[in-house]
C-alpha cells in the first residue's frame, strides 16, 4: 500500500503561458547576441562600442540571473545578498584597469 502510494505521482498539465514566457526570454537573449554581432562588424572599435557591448552584456546577465535562475522572484534580502558583494568586483575592475594603464606608461 505504502509503495503504491509513492508510485502514484500526479502529473500536472503544462502551463502554456509559463512555457511561452521561457521561450520569450530565450528569444531576447538570442536577439541581444545578434545585435552584439551587428555592432562587432558594423562599427569601428572604440570606447563607444565597448560601452555598448558592456551594456548589452549586463542586459543578458540580468535576464539569465533574474528569469532563468529565478533570482528576480526570490525575497529581496536574498537578491541583495547575491548582488551586493558583486559591487566589490566593480571596484576591482576600475582599480586594475587603471593599474594596467600605469604599467604601460612605465614599460
Amino acid at each position: 500500500m505504502q509503495s503504491e502510494e509513492t508510485n502514484n505521482i500526479i502529473v500536472q498539465p503544462a502551463d502554456r503561458k509559463k512555457i511561452m514566457g521561457i521561450w520569450k526570454v530565450a528569444g531576447i537573449l538570442a536577439v541581444v547576441t545578434a545585435i552584439e554581432f551587428g555592432f562587432a562588424f558594423g562599427m569601428g572599435a572604440g570606447a563607444t562600442r565597448t560601452t555598448i557591448f558592456i551594456a548589452l552584456t549586463i542586459v543578458k546577465a540580468y535576464y539569465i540571473v533574474s528569469e532563468f535562475m529565478h533570482l528576480g522572484h526570490e525575497v529581496k534580502s536574498l537578491i541583495w545578498s547575491i548582488i551586493g558583494p558583486m559591487l566589490f568586483v566593480v571596484w576591482l575592475i576600475a582599480v586594475l584597469i587603471y593599474e594596467g594603464g600605469a604599467i604601460l606608461l612605465v614599460r
Partner: peptide, 24 residues
C-alpha cells in the same frame, strides 16, 4: 547560490586580470 557567488569572484578575478594585462 553562495557557492556560485564565490565562483563568480573567481571568474571576475580572471577576467579583470585579462583587462589589466591587456591595458598594460
Amino acid at each position: 547560490w553562495f557557492f556560485l557567488l564565490s565562483d563568480a569572484f573567481t571568474f571576475s578575478a580572471l577576467l579583470v586580470t585579462y583587462g589589466l594585462i591587456r591595458y598594460s
